[in-house]
Every structure is written in structure tokens, then in C-alpha cells.
């Protein structure tokens, strides 16, 4: 039973990371109507950025957040500004960001090669440290990622529910034209939201660099985790992403322990399909477009 207990703990902790990875995609799709695959490369590049600072400049891996996040806030905002400029449609955005993803992955490959890159343990004491409670271990990177995810989730929730910015975002999500008619500065809200979304992606990237090895095709491999989380959690739903991240994390961890790690993607996909089959309507925050 210890095995399963530990699996559930790792699953829950991983769920926090999954939620952070998915939040950007979910908000962008649900609110801005842009399916932004570029977030996957943001996560990856933020990870590499953190790796560079920690491995070669000797920064504490946690501190790298301070340098990496602002960069991606700007990048995310600029990208959205570009989308606003060219008035991109939903499917166009999917293709354009797919092109961007491929380009950025290729850039990563030419800078860092296709080999595994991991922050050396001398520069990253956290990778091997963990909090122990009884017989269970809470690895530091995963635990801190989880706690960060909860803080970010609650902050986002507060921001979206309680502030003027949040009201503007919700107005946009429901009816773009109406929001515009009521004087919501669509462009400013979208750019700001996109910057925030990119920030969560960047934070996720830093935690990933802290806990595992990086390689360029990771960006594409994350699809299998992020999309189930986004769909299970509901488009544009902050707490939904958090909950779905934990569900997916736990299921993947239990599948790994029971049948082997290769079964984890299978288990998450089964959840995705089951959701689509049995609860498709209840999970979405958006009305039919037809």
C-alpha cells in the first residue's frame, strides 16, 4: 500500500505542475479563442533559460524565475498583440502557433542539441532533496511546484472573479462584440491575459528544469498531458485546470505503478475519451458556436 500511497502523492504533486502547464492553453482558448500551441515552446524555452542560468551562471534554480518570467510575460503579450493585429481566427491560430512551435523547437535543438540537458546536482540541490513525512516522500521540486500552482490558481481565480480586469475577461469570454460595445478595451485585456498565461507557462518550465532532464521534443510530448487537463477542467476555468491536473496526475501515477510508466499516456487518453463520450456538455464553460 505504501507504493500506492506514494504514487498518489506524486500524482497529486505532479497535478499541480500539469495545471500550470495547462492554464495558459485553457485561458487562451476559452477566453481569447486562440488555441495557442506556442505555450508548449514557452514552457520548454523557459526551462532551458532556467537551465542556462543555473548550470552555467550558478543561479539558484528558484531564483531563475525572476529572470525567466518577465521575459515570457513580454513574449506572450507581444504574440497576442500580433494576433490582434492580424485578426487571427481560431483555426488559423492553431496552425500559426503550430508553425511557431516547430520553429522554436528547432531553435532549441540548434542551441542545446537533441541531447538531454539537466542542471548538474551541484547547482541544483533540490532535485535530490525531499520532505519526508512518515514513510512518504515529498520531493522538493514537485512539492514547491504544487504549492506554487495552488497559489497561482487562487490568485488567478481572485483576479478573474473579483477585479475589473476579471470582469472584462469574462465579458470577452461570453460575448466579444458585447464586451466591445460596453467599452472593454479588448486588445489591452487580451495582451495582459496572454502575458499572464505565458508567465504561468514559464514558471512551469522553471520547475520542470529543476526536476528533470530537458530535450527539445518534450514540447510535443506534453500534448498528451495538457489537452486532457484542458478538456477535463473546462475551457478557461482556473480551478478546473487545477482539479483536472490532479486527477490526470494521480491516474497517470497509479497507472505507472500498476502496469509500468509506459501506460501513463494510455490512462490519460482513456480519461480524455471517456470525458468526451459521457460528460461532453457538462465540462465546457462555453456555449455552442453553431
Amino acid at each position: 500500500m505504501t507504493l500506492y500511497g506514494q504514487a498518489i502523492i506524486s500524482g497529486v504533486l505532479a497535478g499541480g505542475l500539469y495545471a500550470m502547464m495547462s492554464l495558459g492553453v485553457s485561458l487562451s482558448w476559452g477566453v481569447l479563442k486562440i488555441i495557442n500551441l506556442a505555450y508548449f515552446s514557452f514552457i520548454l524555452l523557459a526551462g532551458y533559460g532556467s537551465y542556462e542560468l543555473a548550470a552555467n551562471q550558478g543561479w539558484d534554480p528558484f531564483v531563475t524565475v525572476l529572470a525567466v518570467v518577465p521575459v515570457f510575460v513580454i513574449v506572450g503579450g507581444l504574440l497576442q498583440l500580433f494576433f490582434e493585429k492580424v485578426k487571427i481566427g481560431e483555426f488559423e491560430s492553431l496552425l500559426v502557433t503550430f508553425g511557431l512551435l516547430i520553429m522554436l523547437e528547432s531553435v532549441a535543438r540548434s542551441i542545446w542539441s537533441a541531447d538531454f540537458r539537466r542542471i548538474p546536482s551541484t547547482e541544483n540541490p533540490y532535485a535530490s532533496s525531499s520532505l519526508r513525512i512518515g514513510e512518504f516522500a515529498f520531493p522538493t521540486p514537485q512539492l514547491s511546484a504544487f504549492l506554487t500552482a495552488i497559489v497561482i490558481g487562487l490568485l488567478m481565480k481572485y483576479l478573474l472573479d473579483r477585479t475589473y480586469f476579471g470582469k472584462a475577461v469574462r465579458a470577452l469570454a461570453q460575448d466579444r462584440d458585447m464586451a466591445r460595445a460596453f467599452g472593454v478595451d479588448h486588445r489591452r485585456v487580451a495582451v495582459l491575459l496572454s502575458g499572464l498565461a505565458a508567465a504561468t507557462a514559464a514558471i512551469a518550465g522553471v520547475f520542470i528544469a529543476m526536476s528533470q532532464a530537458l530535450f527539445p521534443s518534450l514540447a510535443v510530448e506534453w500534448f498528451g498531458i495538457v489537452f486532457p487537463v484542458v478538456i477535463l477542467g473546462g475551457l478557461g476555468s482556473t480551478l478546473g485546470a487545477l482539479g483536472a491536473g490532479v486527477v490526470i496526475g494521480v491516474v497517470a501515477a497509479i497507472a505507472s505503478v500498476t502496469w509500468g510508466p509506459s501506460y501513463a499516456p494510455l490512462a490519460t487518453f482513456v480519461i480524455l475519451i471517456a470525458t468526451l463520450l459521457f460528460r461532453p456538455d457538462g465540462l465546457f464553460t462555453r456555449k455552442a458556436s453553431v
Binding site: 489537452f227 509506459s262 487518453f269
Partner: peptide, 23 residues
């Protein structure tokens, strides 16, 4: 699906290669 058929379709097909690969 009644809703978001096109978008969900794109994403499910995006994920399916990984699942077949996993199998």
C-alpha cells in the same frame, strides 16, 4: 459531440499519435 466539435477533434487527433505510440 454537439459543441466545439472542430476544436476537440483537432486536439484529440493531436493526442492520438502519442497514445498509439504508447501502446
Amino acid at each position: 459531440l454537439r459543441r466545439l466539435q472542430g476544436e476537440i477533434f483537432a486536439l484529440v487527433t493531436l493526442a492520438v499519435a502519442f497514445v498509439v505510440a504508447a501502446i
